[in-house]
């Protein structure tokens, strides 16, 4: 579904990504694990066509992002690291706006959102302004927004930043559930080891380089749980990673 091949990117001559290669298969969750500044957001920006790399390729569902950006993004739902909801609009207005950006009618967007609003326990809040929602609720609205057009690939750039542990856990669980149910491929950028499930694919990024990749348990065996947590630099006990089943 997503293929990144030999991607390099530099800011003012300083390497941010160095020969990065990774793939996310259909219906799989791949965690892009790395400390702050590893290059995760740069990679997400290239995958979504905001940055253009001089070397390497990104394809989504077989479409080259550099040459066929609109067609590639049509299959993609994105949750950015920074919140992007309009605080002065209601939940329904935000969803309707995004649906419109995808070419949907307002009615079609809200119809598509309704089951997700129910499932994410936000049905009662649809006419509330986003400004009065909690951080966790806002994030859930952003995930619903990313799902409105039934994407094949979901890109999540540190979507749990700033949230408390129970809210983080519920979002991680929901995303894994929908990946399994809808066969949506997920690339989840995080620096928190405890957000990764044993069954996930894992790509460990450090200083702009992929230092290991594979099934989470295999990578863990090779690198060691504590080393992995140290590299990621994120809080969260590694015990949770070892004990988690999806």
């Amino acid at each position: 579904m997503l293929k990144v091949s030999q991607l390099s990117f530099a800011y003012n001559g300083i390497a941010a990504l160095d020969n990065v290669t990774l793939a996310v298969e259909r219906g799989k969750v791949a965690a892009l694990l790395g400390p702050n500044g590893a290059g995760k957001s740069t990679l997400m920006s290239i995958i979504t066509g905001q940055f253009a790399a001089k070397s390497g390729h990104v394809t989504i569902d077989g479409r080259d992002v550099a040459r066929q950006r609109p067609q590639a993004l049509k299959a993609t739902g994105i949750v950015f690291q920074s919140p992007t909801l309009d605080l002065d609009l209601t939940v329904a207005q935000n969803l309707s706006y995004f649906g419109g950006l995808q070419g949907m009618t307002p009615g079609g967007a809200l119809e598509s959102a309704t089951p997700w609003l129910d499932r994410f326990e936000l049905a009662e809040r649809r006419n509330d302004k986003v400004r009065i929602l909690s951080g966790g609720q806002r994030r859930r609205v952003e995930i619903i927004r990313a799902l409105l057009h039934d994407p094949k690939l979901l890109l999540l750039d540190e979507p749990t930043t700033g949230l408390d542990v129970p809210t983080r856990q519920s979002i991680v669980r929901l995303v894994h559930e929908l990946a399994a149910e809808k066969q949506v491929s997920v690339l989840w950028a995080t620096h928190l080891v405890d957000e990764v499930y044993e069954t996930d694919d894992l790509v460990v990024l450090q200083n702009g380089r992929v230092i290991d990749t594979g099934l989470c348990t295999d990578v863990m065996d090779r690198m060691g749980k504590s080393d992995l947590a140290a590299i990621a630099g994120g809080s969260g006990p590694t015990d949770q990673l070892a004990g988690r089943t999806s």
Binding site: S8, I14, A16, S41, Q50, S55
Partner: peptide
């Protein structure tokens, strides 16, 4: 509003530069 172009790397990042990525 064209995509930000990445150049070629002339140096590897030092730890202090990582936070910019």
């Amino acid at each position: 509003y064209a995509p930000k172009q990445g150049g070629s790397a002339t140096t590897k990042r030092s730890p202090s530069e990582r936070s910019t990525a």
